[in-house]
Nucleic acid binder design. Sequence first.
DNA 1: GGGATAAGGCTTTTT
DNA 2: GCCTTATCCC
Length: 766
Amino acid sequence: MNELSFFAADATAGLVEGLNPQQREAVEYRGPALLIVAGAGSGKTRVLTHRIAHLLATKDAWPSQILAITFTNKAAAEMRERVRYLLGEAADGMWLKTFHSACVMILRRESGRLGHDSNFTIYDSGDSRAILKRLIKELGADIHKLTPAGVGAAISNAKNELADAESYARNVDQNDPVARMISEIFSRYQYELRKNNAFDFDDLIGETVHLFRAFPEVLAQYQQKFKHILVDEYQDTNHAQYALIRELAKTASLTVVGDSDQSIYAFRGADIRNITEFEKDFPGAKTILLEQNYRSTQNILSAANAVISNNFDRPAKNLWTAAGDGDKIVGYTGYSSHDEAQFIADEINKLHSKSQGDDAIAFRDIAVFYRTNSQTRALEDIFIRSGIPYRVVGGTKFYERQEIKDAMAYLVAIANTRDDLATRRILNVPKRGIGDASETQIASYAEKNNLSVRQVLSHVSDLGFGPKITGAINQFAELMDNLEAMIPNENVDVILRAVLDRTGLLESLRNSKDPQDEARVENLEELVSVAREFQRNNPEGRLPDFLNEVALVAAADELDDESGTVSLMTLHTAKGLEYEAVFLTGIEEGLLPHRMSFITPGGMAEERRLFYVGITRARKKLHLSLAMTRTTFGESESATPSRYLQEIPSDLIDWRESGSGRGMPTTRYRASIADDQGYGSSEGSSGGYGGTPSTKEKKVWSGAISSVRNNEGLQLEVGDMIEHSDFGKGKVIATAGEGARQTAEIHFGSVGTKRLLVKVAPISKL
DNA sequence: GGGATAAGGCTTTTT
DNA sequence: GCCTTATCCC
């Protein structure tokens, strides 16, 4: 149906054509507050885009008066595209952004009031961790067993609750030395951010709220601007985001869309009460339920409903579909994660094969989900071997690669000269003879004289370095000045090119013997294309704009709909997406639910929602798989099926036989977990399968699957001949210790004599 | 200053 | 099993 033609006939009728009554009401309703409870697959994106288009078509709002918040940049771009299609023209001036990018926009304009320059840097978690690591070391906080990740989480949680370092300190038990240490680190961390002219992810939201509260005239400006505010995935907003919306929506009409059953970001501060208590929060709010699912077959929905109904304390809700039952869900239990992966690869090949005729599913319509990123290893191994084209979405991200971070650090350092973190990162990259000692000296001079590291570079004569180092520093300072001078006039890709060429970054990689460096060169070329692409899309964009965009890319943003590859991603990344065929992997106790959730209040319910999100991503084919043994830490441990599996009515699942002839969790196993709803009480319960594979079978598998370097059991004696993967043949001349701790002194001829830990050394006995 | 090697630590999920 | 750090040596 061509919605455009309806629009031509009547400005608004076409916008509700083909919608069900609830959807239609959600599009047409006008009032101060509207909550759209949108079950999985109930067409909420459609409703949201049609509502925006409807607001514009009825002249209830100008584009510039609309603020719509989505979870990812990709969702925002998609929504803009769809609104444009519906209206037949671009709705320019509309703010269609993520929370973070909307806040960046505001902060860039108003940063002066907060003591920042408008060219501030956005620190990602890696940057934060680097600062925290240094502070922990400086303060000797490691004696309290404080880790950068741990302190970072504490600070992040505080910021999500809108606490700053001072208020955090006030609320801390002063008799608790650990708590006092954390609040000290918090305060110094915040000082570092300010000094470097930087915000971390949480600050983007929190500081915007603080800005609005400290400067009512600024808030008033934005309140006047936005007449309609729409927020997607409202169940995953945290307190800071809630407060932001609350401030802005005081004078505007607010629409929120969400589903409390899909709230999966509690660990990031998401507060499910934001949505469950919306009606209390905004008296007179209208609530509309979307319960008809247009995505999945009945079997898939029934499984999803059955699972989620085990969460108590949730508003009753039942998704239904007019589509038929469809195929049964396929279950599979493998010996090992590699066996599981092999099953998935085989199934994917079947689904994709031409023998399926018109039902053949394209690779891009197939997705594999998992709980933790480390699960990709086995999947990738097997997919490569099976020749299945795949793409890992998220995970070790492009921008987290060392060479990319180095190149980006140059760009950041010239865009924001106050950013010492960036400047210090590249001071000696590539190697130019400014080592650790010199760097520390420069940094402490900066600290003493209240200068940025960059400024110190031009005081080099005061530092008393020898001529060699002085020369290197001067050269570096001049290079940075020249690059910086390019910013106002040159395109981003040109500046990046100059960074790569003039700093010697590319050259040092090209001359390197490390084979990995070849890939790094390619990655840097890829970065240049990214910059070029950015410049094409944003002809007016300057370097700081590019840095913004790059800092805020989300995992799901990388998805390329056109690619002919299977997508691999975490369950968290999968939120909001849908596929013809879905594989849910590692449905085991300890993985889903994850063992960390056993000790987290509400963890079991949140993990169940995660499972629910995964199930509801599937349109036609759903596969649930697990492994009997899983390798963590290189140790192979036996795994038990997830308690969530037995929440699915057994007639919905067709358990395929595994290699052992035992495909499904047995009755005995089921009985053992049947009444287990507590937190973690099943850990250690041995239930297991009708019988775990024999030791022999296990050995065969672990041998077949891995290139594990583990010489356990290998005992060496003086006089033995061995071969080492790097040093070649050698002769044992002495040994010490026993078992796993045995060491051996081995003479390798011309290479010399080495002392090695027998268990882990890459050696074999001849 | 810089490279190589071995010991130690660690994994939940992300903007 | 993989990544970061500590230590040794050139």
